[in-house]
């Protein structure tokens, strides 16, 4: 059985949500990895969770990327190891250079905490292989700096290489201006790297795992991941 590792930084606050989603909903093996740890042996999949690592000082994710464990995460990812960064985790992966681009303050400067819709744009990844192209997911967001930015050339290469996995949309799957609540370029909610083994997404699938708590639309993402891990 695959073992998941959930990173814990001072200021992480979605580490337990990710742990719960994997351990109690998906019945997987999962362990916490402290930011000072450097041993990733036995770990098959890494989750960089949401929160406010190191108080988000300087820029979100900027300090966390220099933590001891992140040096190992970069090596793990460069060898093709699967890594998923959610919210602050996405920001950390951007700062670490594992995914291109940067995060700016939400266009309207407000911290937004609500459920939004995202549309599955590509099923060609271990994170989305069990989804349908165009599938709409109802998942929560909770961030102040989720306004994804990349230069024009970079955006073109994301589009050409099919690296955009999720876009913000409305309930019907339309890419309306209102649906793009944080001002992200090209409605981007989640992208993968060129090697397709690293995913960064602002919405929280790990907080949408049980119908009782509002939505279980995050589940198919973790099901896709578990299926891919059991095949390899």
């Amino acid at each position: 059985m695959a073992t998941f590792g959930v990173l814990v930084f001072p200021g992480s606050n979605c580490d337990h949500d990710a742990y719960h989603a994997l351990k109690h909903v998906m019945n997987s093996d999962v362990k916490f990895l402290w930011h000072k740890d450097t041993d990733l042996s036995g770990i098959d999949f890494l989750i960089v969770p949401g929160g406010f690592s190191y108080g988000d000082y300087l820029r979100s994710g900027a300090i966390a990327r220099f933590s001891p464990i992140m040096q190992e995460v970069v090596k793990f990812a460069e060898k093709g190891g699967p890594v998923m960064g959610i919210c602050n985790g996405f920001q950390i992966l951007l700062e670490a250079g594992l995914i291109p681009g940067a995060m700016m303050h939400n266009e309207k400067l407000k911290f937004v905490c609500k459920n939004v819709y995202i549309r599955t744009e590509s099923t060609d990844s271990i994170f989305t292989s069990g989804l349908e192209k165009g599938q709409i997911l109802d998942v929560p967001v909770s961030h102040g700096e989720g306004n994804y930015f990349i230069e024009e050339d970079g955006l073109k290469s994301l589009q050409d290489n099919d690296q955009i996995l999720f876009r913000y949309c409305d309930a019907k799957g339309e890419l309306t201006a209102e649906a793009n609540f944080n001002g992200s370029i090209d409605h981007i909610a989640g992208i993968c790297n060129e090697g397709r083994n690293v995913l960064g997404m602002m919405p929280h699938p790990e907080r949408a795992m049980e119908k009782l708590l509002g939505s279980e639309d995050g589940k198919p993402i973790f099901e896709s991941i578990l299926n891919s891990l059991s095949v390899t």
């Binding site: 300087l58 820029r59 900027a62 300090i63 220099f66 700062e95 291109p100 940067a102 700016m104 930015f149």
Partner: peptide, 8 residues
Amino acid sequence: QLLANEVM
């Protein structure tokens, strides 16, 4: 390395 993010 740290103080500025040259992407933006």
